[in-house]
Amino acid sequence: MPLLDQLVEFVGNHWYLFLALAVIVGLLTHNLIVGGQGSVDPLQATEMMNHRDAVVIDVRPAADFAKGHIINALNIPMNGFKNQLATLTKYKGKPMVVSCRSGSQSSMACSQLRKEGYEEIYNLRGGLMAWESANLPLTRKKR
């Protein structure tokens, strides 16, 4: 059986895996293309927090947030994010750094915030994984 026939048979038998692969590749590509616009690395985010009083919004689920988050971050999980946007109106004039685990979910949250009229919105490139790789601190304390 030629290799191409085996591949076609495998894809036919495991179509859901290839659908998941296509979605992941699409999200990663979207993150690479769109994520570069309005994104900051962990050191730039730290500078914004220290010198411009930037607000950090963590869009991970509450359980993940409780395990460790950026100091003074607000937890507004992606599940229901749109319904909780009213809690951010008092920060509308401030720069916002949006974070998640890897940067993909926060990229979607940034798009939503921009649609709602927020102007200085920055995605934390690489998310908390990049934050930890840069040896920056996390806390478990509630704000």
Rank of each mutant, 00 (worst) to 15 (best):
S107C: 08
G126Q: 06
G127H: 05
F81G: 08
E132C: 09
C100T: 03
A20K: 08
L4N: 05
V25K: 11
K92Q: 11
Q44D: 11
M129C: 00
F81N: 10
M48E: 07
T29I: 07
M129W: 09
S111D: 15
E47Y: 13
P95Q: 01
G26V: 02
R143F: 10
V11S: 04
A73F: 05
P42S: 07
L88P: 05
M96K: 05
W15P: 04
I121Q: 03
S111P: 00
N31W: 00
V97C: 05
L32F: 08
E132D: 11
A109S: 02
L85Y: 00
T46I: 12
K115M: 13
V59K: 00
Y122L: 00
A20N: 11
W131M: 05
Y16Q: 11
L19G: 08
H14C: 00
W131I: 04
K115S: 12
L136Y: 03
L17F: 15
Q6K: 15
L43A: 09
V97D: 00
F10K: 07
R60K: 08
G36A: 08
I70T: 05
G93I: 03
L124S: 09
K82G: 01
D5N: 12
L74M: 11
A63T: 13
L113N: 05
T29C: 07
L3F: 14
Q84R: 15
G12Q: 09
Q105Y: 12
V40R: 08
K90N: 07
K90F: 00
Q6R: 15
L136A: 03
D58T: 09
S133I: 00
H14T: 06
Q44A: 13
F65V: 02
R125M: 08
G80E: 03
D64F: 12
F10W: 07
Y91T: 04
I71D: 12
I24N: 08
